[in-house]
Design a protein around this nucleic acid. Structure first.
Length: 269
DNA sequence: GCGTGATGTTGAA
DNA sequence: TCAACCTCACGCC
């Protein structure tokens, strides 16, 4: 259940473990078996993330992964395969083993097809080549709420529900403010916050957004770490007290996803 | 044990 | 706007 930071972290781990070396590739479940057999023993040349998409490259052949909501790519101990019925992909050099279950996408594509996927994505705050102006061009022309725009991968790649809720809170922006009413300065603030926060997510493997001033160490309150592993202001804290103003955190469904915000710290307009 | 929701996206209505 | 998809951990008996 990953946002972009998880995918970038996985890409770095895969590269460190396997890049430049031959690997065993298999698909115990069978759904990727033919492609896996063709790659088995090939040299893994690179692993790269763009937004929530992960590309594992074997020279001109590319495994395109997207974990979706429930997919998992994780390192496991070498040894007998557990639950092969759901094991879509297994990559190993004998010492290090990574397994993929429940992905939304696991396909073998060409470099040109990889480039086409990337071309459909907006700038990724985790990539040095990202141009926030491209995102702003799309944001300020849209009447959709900023909370929806932040989740749109054609606008900003890699941002998910936690980061969108948290950066809106940290900027004091009401989630339903239309893109057309956002100032360029506010967009720059949101973007800079993503650029600041997401690398920390890659580094730590969890999303922490609470500033020093509201940290448990400073305030003496007990830490409240979400199941995803991080300390946050609003995400999945509906009904709890706002860490800044003390009022209850609100939640509602917005385009099928739970949106969390503080009505007091993020007033309309 | 069972039901549900979850850091996501797609495609149909 | 809604259902479908893929898996699994958690809460509640």
């Amino acid at each position: 259940m990953p946002e972009g930071h998880v995918i970038h972290r996985l890409a770095a781990e895969l590269g460190a473990a396997f890049a430049g070396r031959p690997v065993r590739v298999s698909s115990p479940q069978g759904r990727f078996a033919a492609a896996a057999a063709g790659l088995d023993g090939a040299k893994l040349t690179a692993a790269e993330a763009y937004g929530k998409h992960l590309f594992i490259e074997f020279d001109a052949r590319v495994i395109h992964l997207h974990l979706g909501l429930i997919g998992k790519l994780r390192w496991v101990a070498p040894g007998p395969v557990l639950n092969p019925a759901t094991l879509r992909l297994l990559i190993s050099d004998g010492r290090q083993v990574v397994e993929l279950r429940g992905p939304q996408t696991c396909e073998l594509i060409t470099v040109a097809e990889r480039d086409a996927v990337v071309a459909g994505l907006g700038p990724d705050p985790l990539r040095a080549d990202a141009d926030p102006q491209l995102a702003w061009q799309r944001v300020h022309r849209s009447s959709r709420p900023i909370a929806a725009l932040l989740m749109d991968q054609r606008i900003a790649a890699g941002v998910g529900n936690i980061y969108r809720c948290e950066v809106l809170f940290r900027a004091g922006v009401h989630p339903e403010l239309p893109g057309t009413e956002l100032t360029e300065g506010t967009w720059a603030l949101l973007w800079r916050d993503l650029v600041e926060l997401m690398p920390l997510g890659v580094r730590d493997g969890r999303i922490d957004t609470v500033r020093e001033a509201e940290s448990p160490e400073r305030t003496g309150r007990p830490p409240r770490v979400d199941r995803h592993g991080g300390e946050v202001y609003v995400y999945r804290r509906a009904g709890d007290d706002c860490l800044v103003c003390g009022r209850g955190i609100s939640v509602r469904q917005l385009s099928g996803r739970s949106l969390y915000w503080c009505e007091n710290c993020q007033p309309p307009r």
